[in-house]
Amino acid sequence: MRDEIRVLLVDDQELVRYGLRLMLDARPGLVVVGEAGDGAEAIDAVARLQPDVVLMDVRMPGVGGIEATRRITELRPDARVLVLTTYDLDDHAFGALSAGASGFLLKDARPDDLVAAIRAVHAGDAVVSPRITARLIEVAAPHLGAHRPGDGRAPDADAALGELTPREREIFLLIGRGATNGEIAASLFLSESTVKANVGRVLSKLHLRNRVEAVIRAYELGVVG
């Protein structure tokens, strides 16, 4: 098993890629294995370089970040795509959600936050911080047919939640609140390996691809909001 997390940088600005490479290569446990200037290059680089995490810009000429994310997650379902987005979190960024992105990071994030986000998505967590969760739901929910708080429980809520055990419902609630595996483990006095196994079952039973979708699903069902 590799000790280092292999990162692919995708951004149409060479200076941005250069800065990210310098910063990430200086961090223990991370190695930048390649760069791409647009989505088409990114798709090819993923096939050749087998990165663990793809740091993906959204707005690029030619094949953009959303389409590249879709193709990459089809090509390599185990690859994690961390989408770089603006402060406003526009509609285009949320297209990456249905394309299989594992999380969203604001472009003005601190270097330590970027490193933590890369490690989090590599470990199977979603990067949906409390700072952006409300905006995520506000923009993404209409496109996903989401239920709005105050309207009562979604019609299929009881049926969906009935698929989960009591423990899995507790974990689903915490996922919906944006908690990481470590935070869930501490809250419920469980090991992280136990939490990870339960998270996998929750995603499988609710037919969700990743934890970002789980946040939206929790909102849809009125579990959080």
Rank of each mutant, 00 (worst) to 15 (best):
P130E: 03
V128F: 06
E170R: 10
A123R: 13
A160K: 13
L114K: 04
G145S: 02
R167E: 15
D156V: 11
T165L: 12
A79V: 15
G103L: 05
G182I: 02
L97P: 04
L173M: 01
F104H: 00
P155W: 08
E183S: 13
L82E: 07
D113V: 10
G150A: 10
A154C: 13
A179S: 11
P111Y: 03
H143S: 06
G176T: 11
V127S: 03
A99Y: 05
I184V: 14
T180N: 00
K107W: 12
L84P: 08
R169Q: 13
P111F: 07
G178S: 09
P111I: 12
A96M: 10
P166T: 01
H147R: 15
A179L: 13
A141W: 10
D112E: 15
A154T: 06
A157L: 02
A157P: 00
F172H: 02
A99F: 10
A101I: 13
D158F: 07
A160V: 09
G150L: 09
L82V: 08
L161H: 10
R135V: 06
S129L: 14
A101C: 15
D108W: 00
L136R: 04
L144F: 14
A101W: 12
D125T: 06
A123M: 06
G152H: 05
L164P: 07
G150D: 13
G178V: 05
A126V: 12
P155G: 08
L173K: 02
P166M: 01
L75S: 12
A160T: 11
A179P: 01
L161D: 09
R177W: 06
A96I: 12
A126F: 07
A93N: 00
A179Y: 14
D112I: 02
N181V: 01
T86E: 13
A159M: 04
I118F: 10
R76A: 13
A96K: 11
E163M: 10
A120L: 01
G162N: 12
L82H: 05
A154L: 12
V81R: 14
G145F: 10
S98A: 15
A160Y: 03
P149I: 08
R80W: 07
K107G: 15
D151V: 08
A160F: 03
I118N: 06
A179Q: 00
P77A: 06
I175R: 01
R177P: 05
R153T: 07
E163V: 08
D113F: 01
E170G: 03
A93I: 02
I175D: 07
V128D: 09
G100R: 08
G176K: 05
S129D: 12
R119V: 11
P77V: 11
S98C: 00
S102I: 02
G95P: 00
R110C: 01
S102A: 09
L75P: 12
G100P: 06
G176C: 10
T86G: 15
H122S: 13
V115C: 03
L164R: 10
V115G: 05
